Computed example of a mutant assay.
Amino acid sequence: MTHKTRRYISIFAKGSDELVNELDFAQQPSVATLRTIFNINDPADRLYNEYPIDTNAAANLKSLVNGFFDLNHYDYFLSCEQIIDP
Rank of each mutant, 00 (worst) to 15 (best):
M1L: 14
M1N: 10
M1K: 12
T2Q: 08
T2S: 09
H3F: 09
K4W: 11
K4I: 12
K4V: 11
T5P: 01
R6E: 13
R6H: 11
R7A: 05
R7G: 05
Y8T: 03
I9R: 00
I11L: 07
I11N: 04
I11W: 03
I11C: 07
I11Q: 10
F12I: 05
F12C: 05
F12T: 05
A13P: 05
A13K: 15
K14I: 05
K14A: 07
K14N: 05
G15T: 02
G15S: 06
G15N: 10
S16I: 00
E18D: 11
L19E: 10
L19G: 07
V20Q: 05
V20I: 15
E22I: 12
E22W: 06
L23F: 03
L23E: 03
F25V: 04
F25K: 07
A26R: 13
A26S: 11
A26E: 13
Q27E: 14
Q27A: 15
Q27I: 12
Q28W: 06
P29H: 00
V31L: 08
V31T: 12
A32I: 02
T33F: 03
L34T: 00
R35K: 11
T36C: 09
T36D: 12
T36V: 06
I37K: 01
I37V: 06
F38L: 01
N39A: 15
N39C: 13
N39L: 12
I40L: 10
N41C: 03
N41T: 09
D42H: 01
D42I: 01
D42T: 00
A44E: 14
A44V: 08
A44R: 13
D45L: 07
D45I: 01
R46I: 03
Y48N: 11
Y48D: 11
Y48I: 05
Y48R: 14
N49T: 06
E50N: 06
Y51P: 10
Y51I: 00
P52T: 09
I53C: 01
T55K: 08
T55Y: 05
N56L: 13
A57V: 07
A57K: 02
A57C: 06
A57G: 02
A58S: 14
A58L: 08
A59Q: 05
A59I: 03
N60T: 03
N60Q: 15
N60Y: 03
L61D: 00
K62R: 13
K62L: 10
S63A: 06
S63C: 02
N66D: 14
G67T: 09
F68G: 15
F68A: 15
F69G: 05
F69N: 01
D70C: 04
L71D: 11
L71C: 11
N72F: 07
N72W: 02
H73N: 15
H73M: 09
Y74D: 04
Y74R: 09
Y74E: 08
Y74N: 12
Y74K: 10
D75R: 06
F77E: 10
F77K: 05
F77S: 02
F77M: 04
F77T: 07
L78Q: 01
S79N: 06
C80N: 14
C80T: 12
E81N: 11
Q82D: 14
I83K: 14
I84D: 05
I84V: 10
I84N: 09
D85M: 13
D85N: 12
D85W: 08
P86D: 13
P86F: 12
P86M: 13
